[in-house]
């Protein structure tokens, strides 16, 4: 009997079915991958990326976020200043452009729109440029994207202060877009008059990283 061929083809079929329907299995909440991941160490299911190859270590009391450019009041926020602004929290997926997804992540922080209102955006402003403490990564959003209610400057995720590998003490979380838009170790926000493509965009990713409607965790504009 050709057992070899049969087993081989069965595996190939299972693999193909998993690629085509694996995401649906996850969205039914029967997340086998998460189940497997939970058995293993370090299993918060995030794949940790750093474009610079290291994690900038910033102690929470030394943390500063500079907001400047086309603003009424150039402002430097400490962590306590950010925490003093109206806080928002929600549970949303983290979806990487390469496919992996961490479902139901708890996020907490301050809406980016709240920060923009605090500093006062001048009428000629069009977009934002973000800088990271890693010295390499950068990102961009248009002002209207930045004002979506699920675009936040996060200081808590997964029910705890944002850890260093996850971009702590403070990172961006842009829920309607792929993970690369959620810049880690946020150091500065420049309000500018045109979109300046960030690190990943210069490496070929779309500037508008909307997660496509079919499987995206949220639609633009939803909260």
């Amino acid at each position: 009997m050709a057992v070899g061929r049969r087993v081989f083809l069965t595996m190939a079929a299972l693999g193909a079915a998993g690629i085509a329907f694996g995401a649906k299995v996850q969205s039914f909440g029967v997340s086998i991958a998460s189940g497997v991941g939970a058995l293993l160490p370090g299993g918060d299911h995030f794949r940790i990326y750093s474009v610079s190859g290291n994690y900038p270590a910033i102690s929470p009391d030394k943390y500063r976020l500079v907001v400047d450019g086309l603003v009424e009041r150039r402002t430097t926020f400490g962590l306590a200043d950010l925490e003093a602004l109206p806080r928002t929290s929600f549970v949303k997926d983290f979806q990487c452009v390469t496919g992996w997804r961490v479902p139901n992540v708890h996020w907490e922080g301050v809406r980016l729109s709240e920060i923009l209102d605090t500093v006062g955006v001048r009428p000629e402003a069009v977009a934002l440029s973000f800088e990271s403490y890693d010295g390499t990564d950068s990102e961009s959003l248009t002002l209207s994207q930045a004002r979506l209610p699920d675009v936040i400057v996060a200081y808590r995720m997964l029910g705890a202060p944002v850890t260093t590998p996850h971009g702590g003490p403070v990172r961006l979380y842009v829920a309607p877009m792929f993970g690369y838009k959620s810049l880690k170790w946020l150091s500065a926000i420049h309000v500018v008059d045109q979109v300046e493509p960030g690190y990943w965009e210069q490496n070929g990713y779309p500037v508008n990283g909307w997660i496509d409607g079919s499987t995206g965790p949220s639609d633009p504009g939803s909260s």
Partner: peptide, 20 residues
């Protein structure tokens, strides 16, 4: 790796399969 050519649901499925 060449995720641009595939829908997001396939990428998520591929990750899932690769993990298992």
């Amino acid at each position: 790796q060449w995720f641009r050519f595939f829908p997001v649901s396939w990428r998520t499925g591929a990750t899932f399969v690769h993990d298992l």
